[in-house]
């Protein structure tokens, strides 16, 4: 498995990145960790004449934790796992990151790459939707922000323009209980079904809940109705079943080696039930 030839660019700053992108349009792609892109290039399923490596671009590597949390696009899953402040402010980030790929891949795999690639198998997009994150995109016309919940259009199709670079993700410090539940065949596999859940508890009732699913459609699925089904309830079986039913109305899985559609829907329901139960127990 040998990739096709390409020109390699390693700009020192974002201006340099944008300049190459503008010059080459969709003949150019940025690369962060490369663990989604490089295998595709080696299989010659992606032909990229100009590759722009972001590793020398300053300002993409930081994690700041306060009432708002920002994570630079080049922050790796390994960084997320090791960052104590982040783990305590947004523990779902660590819980999810530990379930992504394997140790070596997590050293290289970045938040930016994971959210921007638009691969339905990636875990961060659903997680970002659950957290109602905002993505910062930088392009020739400057910066703009897009809600994670509005970003994904189809498999590998996002709101990002060819000349834009996703530079950071930002979300409010999550409240309440959390769970990232993922079923997969083995370490290194994408999800058969995965659910990201955050639940805010007020007394004995659920004040609000946010639910997003991974690898069950050609985009991540933020299920607003599933969250709404829990709000105001005591998260009893009836409420959970209502949330699951709402989620099932939103997903649209396809058959693959992980199983037929019927199984995926079943697994999605099971995984969501477990995620809700776990998040509720932590709320």
């Amino acid at each position: 498995m040998i990739p096709g030839a390409f020109e390699y660019h390693r700009p020192k700053d974002m201006e340099g990145v944008l300049a190459v992108l503008q010059e080459h349009g969709d003949d150019a792609r940025v690369i962060a960790g490369g663990h989604s892109l490089i295998p595709m290039m080696k299989l010659r399923m992606a032909d990229i004449p100009h590759l722009i490596d972001l590793q020398d671009v300053q300002g993409l590597n930081s994690i700041t934790v306060g009432d708002t949390i920002t994570i630079g696009a080049m922050v790796t899953q390994h960084h997320i796992i090791e960052n104590h402040a982040l783990a305590s402010a947004a523990p779902i980030m660590r819980e999810a990151s530990l379930q992504i790929a394997d140790p070596q891949v997590r050293y290289m795999g970045t938040v930016g790459g994971n959210v921007a690639n638009g691969d339905p198998g990636n875990d961060m997009p659903g997680l970002m939707q659950c957290l109602d994150a905002t993505f910062t995109l930088v392009g020739p016309d400057g910066e703009r922000e897009v809600a994670a919940r509005d970003f994904y259009e189809a498999a590998y199709m996002t709101d990002r323009e060819d000349e834009e670079v996703l530079t950071q993700v930002r979300f409010d410090k999550p409240q309440g209980g959390f769970a990232y539940e993922k079923q997969k065949r083995k370490i290194g596999d994408y999800a058969t079904a995965a659910a990201a859940v955050q639940i805010v508890k007020d007394g004995d009732t659920c004040a609000s809940a946010s639910i997003a699913m991974t690898n069950l459609s050609d985009t991540p699925i933020y299920s607003e109705d599933a969250g709404a089904a829990l709000a105001g309830t005591t998260v009893d079986d009836t409420a959970i079943e209502a949330a699951v039913a709402a989620m099932l109305g939103d997903i649209d899985p396809t058959e693959d080696n992980r199983g037929p559609i019927e199984f995926k829907r079943h697994a999605a329901a099971v995984i969501l039930r477990r995620a809700i139960a776990r998040a509720w127990s932590r709320a």
Binding site: Y8, G34, L51, D53, P103, M108
Partner: peptide
């Protein structure tokens, strides 16, 4: 697997340019 700048890396998935 090799160690690149202190990280365990699968060297089949890294270009020499990187």
């Amino acid at each position: 697997t090799v160690t690149v700048n202190g990280k365990s890396v699968k060297s089949c998935t890294m270009f020499v340019a990187q």
